[in-house]
Design a protein around this nucleic acid. Structure first.
Length: 299
DNA sequence: CCACTAACCTGTAGGC
DNA sequence: TGCCTACAGGTTAGTG
């Protein structure tokens, strides 16, 4: 579900409550999500203090006092929330309200300022996954990731190097996490619209023969950056049931230019186009056939 | 190495 | 209301 802006929103929501907290207890309600939990996962968390809540691409990276890092990917439907409580009438006894069907991980936290809480990871489709590692080099999920799109390592020149000679459509190239890490189906459509590039344009067509990025590739690098920054500022996009850890929703979905806008007018000033939907490698792409162009250099 | 498909799961929206 | 199909923000494994 979540792309970089949604994961960053989750990170910002969790950090103040997690950083400094002691993991008193950890529990997993099944042995796998998308992949099996690594062996020793629960034991590696229990008794540790959380030092920081970070992010790389779409991965949450939680640094622990034992030097290990807990990695969490939300897949399509993963979410974190703090438990509500069920009070048992007969006594003062109460317990966190857990849905056995979709709540797969429960951590009991003790925070020096915020006190005790129960952090719950829910994931209906179980496309999410978790890992624990000592250094990033040991983590198969992280080692092939491309540059962070909001870092200086990501720019048109760098992309040009990867796209030179590539026949794959630009849509597929941008979804490839080895090219740039953190984009997904929504923000690829939005960035391509900003750069006036059709999603089915071959990636290599955006690079000159001498390996220099075209004007539209420069525009694309800028479009990727601005759409992500704007989406993070808006708290991400809420489709279906995405919730941040406060139970609130983002509002960037109200600013989509083309994503899920099939049949609606293109919002580019003076453009008379109508948004179209095509399917590429099994996934929807949305674009304006009037102001987004293929290999021919125009805008 | 590249490009494409299928698979992993469940929930929901829309058509009839 | 119910049934059936299509589709969903991601990633990996397998095929040619």
């Amino acid at each position: 579900m979540p792309e970089l802006p949604e994961v960053e929103t989750v990170r910002r929501g969790l950090a103040p409550w997690l950083e400094g907290a002691l993991i008193v207890n950890a529990r997993i309600n099944r042995k796998d999500l998308r992949f099996p939990f690594p062996k020793g996962f629960v034991k590696a968390l229990e008794g540790q203090r959380i030092e920081s809540v970070g992010r790389r691409a779409k991965y949450l990276l939680i640094a622990l006092s034992n030097g290990m890092t807990w990695l969490s990917h939300l897949g399509m439907t993963g979410s974190y929330r703090f438990a509500e409580f069920t009070f048992k009438d007969a006594s003062r006894y109460y317990e966190p309200k857990v849905d056995e069907k979709h709540d797969h991980v429960v951590l009991t936290l003790e925070h020096p300022e915020h006190g005790r809480s129960h952090l719950i990871y829910a994931d209906a489709r179980r496309f999410g996954f978790m890992d624990i590692f000592k250094s990033e080099a040991d983590c198969a999920y992280l080692k092939d990731l491309g540059p962070e799109p909001l870092s200086n390592a990501f720019n048109a020149q760098e992309m040009a190097g990867r796209f030179l000679g590539k026949k794959a459509p630009i849509k597929a190239a941008l979804l490839d996490q080895r090219v740039v890490a953190g984009l997904g189906n929504i923000y690829v459509s939005e960035a391509l619209h900003r750069a006036h590039i059709r999603p089915d344009c071959p990636a290599g067509a955006l690079v000159a023969k001498d390996g220099k990025p075209s004007a539209r590739l420069e525009l694309l690098a800028q479009g990727v950056r601005t759409v992500l920054i704007e989406a993070i500022e808006a708290g991400g996009s809420t489709l279906r049931d995405f919730r941040n850890s406060d139970g609130g929703s983002g509002y960037f979905q109200h600013r989509f230019a083309v994503y899920d806008k099939e049949g609606e007018p293109c919002p580019t000033p003076l453009c008379q186009g109508t948004v179209e939907r095509i399917v590429q490698s099994g996934r929807s792409s949305f674009f304006c056939p009037v102001c987004q162009h293929g290999p021919e250099e125009r805008r």
